[in-house]
Amino acid sequence: MQEIVIDCLGEACPVPLVKAQNKLKEMNIGDILICQIDHSCAMKNLPEWARTDGHNVEVDEVDDGEWEVVIEKVK
């Protein structure tokens, strides 16, 4: 099991979402992707997409206006 962190701080929508989608494609089942984001719209669309795609998702508010979206690749 691998844990991969992508730094999307300072990136506006839809860059974080597309980056996460591309990264997740390269990963193996069971791997964890941690997306660091500070754009509130990514905080909505990134977890929404990952959940609809069937992955396990958790959002941590790490600081004011800063989040980590933790995605476990399930399939």
Partner: peptide
């Protein structure tokens, strides 16, 4: 709205 949600962050230019 951002202040009420305590989500204010001055973002860096990447």
């Amino acid at each position: 709205s951002v202040l009420f949600a305590s989500q204010l962050k001055i973002k860096k230019i990447k």
